[in-house]
């Protein structure tokens, strides 16, 4: 399972420059899930519970994408959407609808929403849609070529070179390396790596991760002090500068 490309981070993942998301949602539990989820993925999250608050916050600017629930206590999502567009703001809007009814979607899209998701939705799906919206709006461009020392990885051509010489990687090894290079210094446990590369429903021994990491290390000629370091008792992390 290849991870979608996203921009590299700086020192640590909670300091982000990947984009600011305004989440408008009155269900606290869903809000908490979205806040943690987006924060972990490197976005800055502004959480508001009502439509008026959302409009006030948008006025201040600095929002890259809006995730908007329809059922809100004061002004409903359709109305918020309409007002955003009537004020001439072109920030991308993704609506969360409670109903599957087509009218709802059509109405949302008519009012200027860019995309919609029906509850219950998968977070992965939401994340993919948000990334697509960011990419389309062109506000936050994503790196196509990642590099660390003489190691280069091109996401589009799926080529990896070490000191100018091509390195042949399996899809899993490529995805693993891309994940490491996009999140320098972040410590991944074996379980997380399993989930992200083999899928959430994969059941198996975490040794399989160690096997792939060791193959990857030997293919890119990673010798101590390594780029891919083993964090004892935890997992692996990528350190670009040695």
């Amino acid at each position: 399972m290849a991870d979608r490309p996203f921009q590299g981070t700086k020192e640590s993942f909670w300091v982000s420059n990947r984009g600011t998301i305004l989440v408008v949602e009155d269900e606290r539990a869903i809000m908490e899930m979205l806040r943690v989820g987006f924060t972990y993925e490197g976005y800055e999250v502004i959480a508001v519970q009502g439509g008026r608050e959302a409009l006030d916050r948008l006025q201040e600017g600095g929002v890259d994408v809006v995730v908007l629930d329809i059922m809100l206590p004061d002004v409903d999502g359709f109305e918020v959407c309409r007002r955003i567009r009537s004020r001439g703001w072109d920030v991308p809007i993704l609506m969360l609808t409670a109903k599957k009814e087509i009218e709802d979607r059509v109405r949302g899209l008519d009012l200027g929403a860019d995309d919609y998701l029906t509850k219950p939705f998968s977070f992965d799906e939401l994340l993919a849609r948000v990334r697509a919206l960011l990419r389309r709006s062109g506000k936050k461009s994503e790196a196509v070529v990642l590099s660390a020392g003489d190691l280069m990885l091109n996401v589009e051509t799926r080529e990896v070179t070490k000191g100018g010489k091509p390195v042949r990687l399996t899809p899993t090894e490529f995805a693993l390396l891309e994940l490491f290079m996009r999140h320098p210094r972040r410590v991944f446990t074996r379980e997380t790596l399993l989930n992200r590369l083999w899928g959430y429903e994969y059941v198996g021994d975490t040794n399989v991760v160690d096997v792939h990491v060791s193959h990857l290390r030997s293919k890119i000629g990673d010798r101590p002090p390594r780029l891919i370091r083993t964090i004892y008792g935890v997992g692996y992390a990528f350190y670009p500068e040695t």
Partner: peptide
């Protein structure tokens, strides 16, 4: 909440 939170956790927030 359950589905989304589990996904967020499995993506790495569990760490």
């Amino acid at each position: 909440v359950l589905l989304g939170s589990l996904e967020v956790l499995m993506r790495g927030a569990q760490d």
